[in-house]
Design a binder for these strands. Sequence first.
DNA 1: GAGTGGTCTAGACCACACC
DNA 2: GTGTGGTCTAGACCACTCT
Lengths: 252, 252
Amino acid sequence: MPAPAATAPAAPAFSPLYQQIKALMTRELQAGVWRPGESIPSETELAARFKVSQGTVRKAIDELATENLLVRRQGKGTFVATHAEQQIQFRFLRLQPDEPAAEGAGGGTMRRFIDCRRMRAPADVARALGLRSGDAAVQVKRVLSLRGAPVVFDEIWLPAGPFKGLTAERLSGYRGPMYQLFESEFGVRMIRAEEKIRAVAADGEAAELLGVAPGTPLLSVERLSLTYGDKPVELRRGLYHTAAHHYRNELS
Amino acid sequence: MPAPAATAPAAPAFSPLYQQIKALMTRELQAGVWRPGESIPSETELAARFKVSQGTVRKAIDELATENLLVRRQGKGTFVATHAEQQIQFRFLRLQPDEPAAEGAGGGTMRRFIDCRRMRAPADVARALGLRSGDAAVQVKRVLSLRGAPVVFDEIWLPAGPFKGLTAERLSGYRGPMYQLFESEFGVRMIRAEEKIRAVAADGEAAELLGVAPGTPLLSVERLSLTYGDKPVELRRGLYHTAAHHYRNELS
DNA sequence: GAGTGGTCTAGACCACACC
DNA sequence: GTGTGGTCTAGACCACTCT
């Protein structure tokens, strides 16, 4: 028998059937054959198409559902997840009010766009987004107000390539979450994100936009959003005013 | 046929078999029949015991495993999860250094206990822990140092009942994570936790213990830890110095 | 080799949504 | 009623661990 290499133990990489099915299905999603909000073929049809049992397809769908790429609905079918669903308006925003909304108090959520410009990506942004230094990027600044008071100041960086044609008008004219616009207008779907959270002191710009004194402690949330294949497609630096709100997290 | 009550739509509460099995297994865990670190009976044995198919037991175990109550190990068996596992020393601590450890730089993790006293629980603590106002609680204060520098100042509140006999000596003499001590010495297992995160300015005590100027922005992390049945058993107020560390979170 | 969890199958039946 | 996902079963075989 052949002697295996000492430091490279071959790794035949046994891959279960359902993982292969899952990969095939992910391709359909990534290629846009199955579009956000629409239903995918039924389990029995997929089983026939892939020539495996329904149980195997089922396990593949199970995993895609726990990864929030698909949504099962009993009696109706399995659907491609979308950021457009009304219920979870801001799927990635973990900020919530300390006290539940009082009767008829305050307004809802308001967005105000401060700035939107195309420029060369700074070195750190380029590195995070996987761009070459000097590549173009779009910078967006905006303020989110909850119940009438400004609470979030976001600085958003997007690679110019996939987001060609993104303008301030396009942004401010759009109703609904930003990620929904990205999904429907630019075909970019945010799948998951990683956040790094710190406490910082408000600088002049943030203080003015959030209506606090310079030096006020703010939550700094740096979010890197990823699409299929863990490809980074957005870097978002948020400053949250946490006097009456908090960032909520569940550990398990 | 009997007319159902108008506002109480009966809710026959259909419960799948595997959920019932899961509930039975959770009881065994809660009662301590299956102890942390030990293995539970094999799938086939449980199937025979509960008089269901192996697949049904399997689905129950699957859910308990995704909830981190059980750990599967192929070829060996299924084990009760424990905080004692070496790898994940601080399962609930999401803080991590901005830069990976340099070669041979700095020390490891150090704990320093500042205080440990028994007293009446303040109103807010009592409410969070589900105690009656005036009930006794144990307050622990400690500082965590990473790589030689103080980074975390924790104020921990525990209900006096389950933690009878907890003293400063017991704490400082123990090697290993606190949650491991709680588990092995007091039979209290933290299953999951909820955190509320804010940015605050360092007060005098925190500033001194963390070696920063008063007013320095700190991350305030209020953690409520829960055991079986979502019963709260710990309230922990942490202040993190985030100059060289950050709180890491994954969204999906 | 014996025992464990992991995969895969085929078929039956149940709960739910829509017509 | 028809079609969808959800549950449950019984059995076969595979991969891993330990003896």
